[in-house]
Design a protein around this nucleic acid. Sequence first.
RNA 1: GCCGGAGUGGCGGAAUGGUAGACGCGCACGACUCAAAAUCGUGUCUCGCAAGGGGUGAGAGUUCAAGUCUCUCCUCCGGCACCA
Length: 806
Amino acid sequence: MQKSYDPSKIEKKWQTVWEKKKVFQTKDKSKKPKFYGLIEFPYPSGDGLHVGHVRSNTAMDIITRKKRMEGFNVLYPIGYDSFGLPTENYAIKTGVQPEIVTKKNIKIFRKQLKSLGFSFDWDREINTSDPKYFKWTQWIFLKFLEKGLAYKAKIDINWCPRCKIGLANEEVIGGNCERCGAPVEKREKEQWMLAITKYAERLIKDLDTVDYLEQIKTQQKNWIGKSEGTLLKFQISNSQSQNNEKMEIEVFTTRADTLFGVTYIVLAPEHELVKKLIADPQFQISNKEEIKKYIKDSKNRTEIERTNEEKEKTGVEIKGVKAINPANGEEVSVFIADYVLANYGTGAVMAVPAHDERDYKFAKKYNLPIIEVISGGNISEKAFIDYGMLINSKNFNGMKSEEAIKAITTQFGKSVVKYKLRDWVFSRQRYWGEPIPVVHCEKCGIVPLKEKDLPLKLPKVKNYEPTDTGESPLASITKWVNTKCPKCGGFAKRETDTMPNWAGSSWYFLRYTDPKNTKKFADFKKLKYWTPIDWYNGGMEHVTLHLLYSRFWHKFLYDLKLVPTKEPYKKRTTHGMILGEGGEKMSKSLGNVINPDTIVKTFGADTLRVYEMFMGPFDQAISWGENNIVGVRRFLEKVWKLQFKVSKIAKTNEKLETLLHKTIKKVGEDIESMSFNTAISAMMILANEMEKEPAITKKDFEIFITILSPFAPHIAEEIWSNLGNKSLIAETKWPSFDKKKIVQEKVTIMVQVNGKIRAQFEAERDISESVAKNKAISLPEVQKWLAKGEIKKVIFVSGKIINFVI
RNA sequence: GCCGGAGUGGCGGAAUGGUAGACGCGCACGACUCAAAAUCGUGUCUCGCAAGGGGUGAGAGUUCAAGUCUCUCCUCCGGCACCA
């Protein structure tokens, strides 16, 4: 037995023992109840493991270690989300194949993860860029295609001119590229799409069935952006379409009650009708050139410029075209303006300047009429957007807005539900991603590969650079591109787009249940045993996109009866980021990145683990503080020394026993609520108390070490074995606490006079009010205060407080 | 602008409406030492010699009792943002 605590000697030792004895390898069959704990798998970047990974991995490691000790059959898997831009960019710079870089990085990650003693089942390790894995990502894509949920569309995509890549709406942050920050442009391109909007309603509704933090649910709902409103049709005056009916403009509004206040109609510049109107000879449009120029200009403007114009709204009237308000038959002018979005609602709005701020500003600028139809505001100053009483609205006058919305909708339109969520742009013009497994045949069109031809692997290329034309680097590999049509055997070309990063991570949690299956993405029986995931922890930054995408894939697979549950995750929590010492994000350029290896070397893995759990509330962002690590190391040193105090002649005293049982309770509960910092503080208090004792019993100390073991598994294992145990502490039982022992017999009763504490005394826990009152009154410090008045009221809180109101 | 979350010592942070500042860092003093480090002990919100007073972003309120509940306001962080 070593006298001094030397983590470098014991940590490696126990990691080897766990691995050899396969302690954390999970069986798919067990009489025990199952527990599936999941963390977001890391992207194996060249920078190596981040201290942030350590924080979230340790948290779930503590939870799963405790669950194992509580008798659960636990699955705690790990893998790598290895397709991604940094690796590809590295390949562009150096010419080294992404596959090779990825392999190298994974090796480093694996070693780092192992050095921290996480209780992963390493036999289930997965890697999204491994063909054996992405075969099934491609397979799932083909299912989407088969069911008509994957389709190709020519759309205006968000184009990052610097990354030379199309971005999903989700990847555009405030008009800028999420990765490089460059302003995003619009480009029209043929793209693969996934029809996530078909699942919008279920993605909202089923949130009621899961245990996510309220904040997460709200974010998901906001992103999907459901709104209920009315579709209204405005006919175009003096117009005739081919089937002899009048042409119409369809608008979407949530405020049908303001229909009588419409003074003009606005179309988005991209609206299809605009082109038709200009081309149609039946209209005498006097300013065609002006309109064309406006459309062209707005297309060239980036998102950023468009959104920056919040104050100045621009637009052009289509002179010669009028629309008819269905409610009163009056003619109103028609404008195009880019404050109206083409891809929301119908791409056209009815403008009610009196009751909408944007319309108000626009109307003021272009001198358009403003008609008040809801009373309660002062429209000569600003738009009145609240609900109120209808005026100037013929037979709807006097109705309340809520009522009028229903009535007007029934009479003139129909109610519909619209979502902000748009279909998912699923194409990337990049090399390092899953190839989309279809070919383009001149005869047969788009033809999916046959299942037996999956996986479709990536060809080796020399140049990874994306092209300015927006084509994937794969397009230049003619040998790979030219192929035979699986249907007719004729000449065909492969699709050269690859899938986005989100693809592989949208189903990885399913693969963990059956990672080596070559026949299916996962066996249904195994899925039935393991899913849903009992607890999923990850970063706040993945709460909208990854969570939404993976829920969508899961629901799709559920509809195909390939997975047994509607929702993948029963419970989702989030961790806060670890920031640099100054409070900024850790980054290479700031030079404030902490390498976990260094900390493990100087302080030990257990110290790093406990420190990261102790540093602050788990769900909040927190700055790294090198100074505070020493405190944790001191604590572990203290625990180490305590083992030499274990003695056969030691006797438990009541005080220590009470504290011990309180600590068991607190640590157990705190782990469940992720209050790791207070759990550790409770154990520090216990260690401090034990240190004061001349000797401690083996039993008491073993209980302490057991509850410490999920946090600091190596030192716990070493001490456990030093105490003469042949078994592993990782496989021992989580201790239970005795309710009776937690209750203290002696308590301190605080004596207040008018709510201020004036004295205190020791008493039996169940002291009665009258006894306490007499005792309190007899105290000289209390008498002094009571002399100042008459006792009006006495409040007694059993075992805690007695308060005299005078 | 809208929706969340948060404001507590020198610092990270604790507090089922019931002793504010647990635990840790730092600091001060003491012990050990030739000395230092390590370790251990004591102290550490603030004003005051003391008795006592004040104190959880600001202001009001509810209550015997408010960091905690209610209202108004300020600041910071996160998300969304011309969504009709």
